[in-house]
């Protein structure tokens, strides 16, 4: 790890003064479970590290406009023990439980989960974010069993975020601040597929700090996450689905289905969700929605198996949300 300056500001204003205009100027430290590893691997080499855990207003999980405000420094463990989350957001709880290490849940933050860099082994081993050599993707003809089945252009890694799909299905927003003001971005728009090596996977600039994640009121809507994983151990899932259902009596008023770990961003399956309107959730309708959700998949040479896993994840998430799992 290269050496760096360190600061632990007490206010957001102080923190803004410590950030720069390039990623190499300064990095924001919260849980550190990704940043410190990235620095050890020389994938991040900031001149300064700004610890935001001392900024009081960034902490806590509180009620906000009938929904939730998850502060930027709230940990995964904070989320799991929050009575507010437990009362209405089983999809977030399932995503949190999927992070199988208590140590990571104690250290890592929910906002940090959205910002973690891809776990693609080409990226982590220094081949670049897009793993291009002479303009060609190393992923295409390489070891791609854990890569995207919904690649976007040259981006073939998968978003590693555990909470992204659930937050998108719930209609959540990311609140971002800088010295020039505040902005809110739908979580669905926060993730971006990079088109070049210098692009980022998220809509965040080096001089900005995520201050909170805003989750709308669940309003009696049903939600669930199902993760398909290799054994029970400490690893990222192979494919996941998060769903949110607004019911009209026994049938679906509107549905939202979002797939995780299948593309460089979480993948919103709007057409599949639309097929559920007016129907009740049964084995048959859930299975059909799962198949519709993966209809556009374009798997790589060795990850075709993930298409089926993603369809099954959708089916099981829908059945869980409807209380029929």
């Amino acid at each position: 790890m290269h050496s760096f300056e360190y600061a632990s500001p007490a206010t957001l204003k102080e923190a803004f003064g410590l950030l720069g205009n390039s990623w190499s100027d300064a990095a924001v430290l919260a849980g550190g479970t990704d940043l410190i590893t990235l620095m050890k691997e020389h994938l991040a080499e900031p001149k300064r590290v700004v610890n935001i855990k001392g900024i009081k207003e960034l902490g806590g999980i509180t009620k906000s406009g009938g929904g939730l405000r998850i502060g930027a420094t709230a940990t995964v463990d904070d989320l799991l023990s929050s009575a507010l989350v437990r009362a209405g957001y089983p999809s977030l709880l399932a995503a949190a439980r999927g992070i199988a290490s208590p140590q990571l849940r104690h250290m890592g933050t929910v906002a940090g989960d959205l910002c973690q860099r891809p776990r693609c082994w080409y990226y982590r081993n220094g081949f670049g974010l897009l793993a291009l050599k002479d303009g060609k993707s190393l992923v295409d003809g390489g070891q791609n069993e854990f890569h995207a089945i919904f690649p976007k252009g040259v981006a073939k890694f998968v978003s590693a975020s555990s909470f992204g799909p659930a937050l998108i299905a719930l209609g959540a927003k990311v609140k971002i601040a800088s010295s020039t003001g505040e902005r809110e971005v739908a979580v669905a728009e926060f993730f971006k597929a990079p088109a070049s090596e210098t692009d980022r996977e998220i809509d965040l600039h080096p001089n900005e700090i995520i201050t909170a994640i805003l989750v709308p009121a669940a309003k009696g809507a049903k939600n669930a996450t199902y993760e398909v994983r290799n054994r029970e151990g400490l690893d990222w899932p192979l494919a996941t689905a998060s769903v949110s259902l607004t019911m009209k009596g026994a049938s679906v008023g509107s549905a939202s289905i979002v797939l995780g770990h299948v593309g460089p961003t979480p993948v919103v399956a709007a057409a599949a969700a639309g097929t559920l309107t007016g129907k009740t959730i049964t084995e048959a309708t859930a299975e059909a929605a799962g198949k519709a959700a993966v209809a556009g998949a374009t798997p790589l040479s060795d990850n075709g198996y993930k298409v089926h896993l993603a369809a099954v994840a959708v089916k099981r998430a829908l059945l869980a949300a409807a209380g029929k799992a």
Binding site: Y6, S8, I36, Q103, M107
Partner: peptide, 27 residues
């Protein structure tokens, strides 16, 4: 592992388990 995965460096900070290899001493 020195990468916050194996757990051999586990200790308690304020009563909760953490990976000491992935926490800065200054913090």
């Amino acid at each position: 592992c020195d990468r916050g995965t194996c757990g051999a460096c586990t200790m308690l900070v304020n009563g909760k388990t953490v990976y000491a290899c992935t926490a800065l001493a200054v913090d």
